[in-house]
């Protein structure tokens, strides 16, 4: 199926992909490193594995970025 991840179309082979596996396939090993929006709604990190994606879903990974001073 086709989904959009951070603005870019991605093809997913799995029939019922869950959010956690899509995170992993996008090289996000530690789910706590990002906040995730699915179709504009935030998903709690505890729900990543239980959230099944559908055709056309729009996923945004928002990364923690803490640098600035030192």
């Amino acid at each position: 199926m086709e989904i959009t991840v951070n603005g870019v179309a991605q093809s997913i082979a799995a029939a019922e992909p869950d959010l956690l596996s899509v995170l992993k396939s996008n090289k996000i090993e530690d789910p706590q490193m990002v906040a995730v929006q699915l179709n504009g709604q935030f998903v709690e990190s505890s729900q990543y594995a239980a959230t099944i994606l559908s055709e056309g879903d729009v996923v945004e990974f928002l990364y923690f970025m803490g640098g600035g001073s030192r």
Binding site: D30, Q32, A35, F64, G66, G67
Partner: peptide, 20 residues
């Protein structure tokens, strides 16, 4: 609203570790 709480210490690299 976006990031609920700080990430666990050392889970996210800082500039001093990762460079910028």
């Amino acid at each position: 609203c976006v990031f609920r709480q700080p990430p666990p210490p050392d889970s996210v690299p800082t500039c001093s570790q990762a460079g910028v």
